Amino acid sequence: MPNEAAQREPVGDLAMIVGTGGTTGKPKGVMLTTRNLETMTAIVLMSYPFEGWPVYLALAPLTHAAGVLCFPILARGGEIVIMPQPDIAEFAVLLERHRVTHTFLPPTLIYMLLGLADLDVRDLSSLQCFWYGAAPMSVSRLEEALHRIGPMMAQLFGQTEAPMMISTMSPAEHFLPDGSIAVARLASAGRAAPLVTVAVMDDAGRALGQGERGEIVVRSSLVMAGYYKDAAATADVNRFGWHHTGDIGYLDGEGYLFIVDRAKDMIITGGFNVYSAEVEQSIMRYPGVRDCAVIGLPDAKWGEQVTAVVQIDPAVPVDVEALRLFVKRELGSVKTPKVIEVWTDLPRSKVGKVLKAEIKRDLLGR
């Protein structure tokens, strides 16, 4: 009989090759090892509530976040309910019917869920953990979700190269000790996950201090083995011995990580840095706005002009000039969009991320 231990797959062997989202360029193949998946599973089980046998509802594509989250559910011997088609109304029905304990949606789909007329009559008491991530979520809509869906919203921040769990924020962390909502914390991406070291770095590889903005970098057994057949890209993303996420952010005094923008989405107008995510948060606070995207377009005078495309609730009229003044009062004139367009919908990837590159191509092609 062959030695059983010798037949086991060595820890660290390639487990899967996963495509990046392609929202900032041509997709790359991310090589994930068994150790990456074991680390991710351990982080999930350490960071979020799991009582009894979990029931997980998967709506988003299993090729991305919704699929990776199946691993910790399976590790607990849980049940996975898979939706063959994305239908947010059916999603709400299935939450109740299957007594779902865990699920995941990107913010855009949570906004659609909050728009359901019958959401408030659904029995969602079985939910222990409703993960959100893959894109920044509006603080005002997150507050609404905490009231209407319940105190089980749970954030995760990661990327294909460091699957899902660079930082975490459990349901309990959304609240202060007195039971009130921790509003200031809601704009964060949580704190560094167990088994993960997070830092903020400048372009020269210098670690930055509390409150200083720079690129978010990571060290962990969570980080991929590299990009498939792309040694140059692998070397570039591992500069200075850290994995570079491509996200700009800072750490506060309590260790909470705040993501202010993707490095490629930052707008430079009149010599000032404008973080599109900050402008999007302001726009999303305006009544009637369902979703939005802020980009920079070439401008002869300013270098780039801040431009916003918004999707509105058809039942709530939105005055564009009033919206512009609202943003100006909150953020000042430099960060206020020079142009605001209203679209019936925004182009999105299969996982619900708004495709800013497509929006920019459309506007530049006119």
Rank of each mutant, 00 (worst) to 15 (best):
E4C: 04
Q7D: 04
Q7T: 11
V11S: 13
A15T: 00
M16P: 01
T20R: 03
T23M: 11
L32Y: 08
T39S: 09
M40F: 09
I43N: 02
L45K: 14
S47T: 12
G52W: 11
W53P: 09
Y56L: 03
A58H: 01
L59Y: 00
A60I: 00
L69P: 01
F71S: 12
I73E: 04
I73P: 03
I82R: 15
M83L: 14
P84C: 14
Q85M: 12
Q85H: 14
A89M: 06
H98C: 06
P106N: 08
L109S: 07
G115F: 02
L127M: 10
C129D: 10
W131K: 00
G133P: 14
S140L: 12
L142F: 04
E143C: 13
A154H: 00
Q159E: 05
P163S: 11
S170P: 07
P177F: 12
D178H: 12
A182T: 05
V183A: 13
A184F: 06
L186I: 15
G190K: 07
A192M: 03
T197R: 14
V198R: 03
V200C: 07
A204S: 08
A204Q: 04
E215T: 11
S220Y: 09
L222T: 06
Y227I: 08
A232C: 08
A233G: 11
R239K: 13
F240K: 05
I248D: 09
Y250C: 02
G255R: 10
I259Y: 00
V260P: 01
A263R: 07
F272C: 10
F272A: 13
S276M: 11
V279L: 09
E280H: 05
Q281K: 03
M284T: 02
P287M: 03
R290W: 07
C292D: 07
I295R: 02
G296D: 02
D299Y: 06
V306I: 11
T307E: 05
P314S: 14
P314M: 13
D319N: 15
L325H: 12
G332H: 10
P337V: 11
K338A: 14
V339D: 13
E341N: 09
K350Y: 03
V351P: 02
L355P: 01
A357R: 14
I359D: 00
G365R: 12
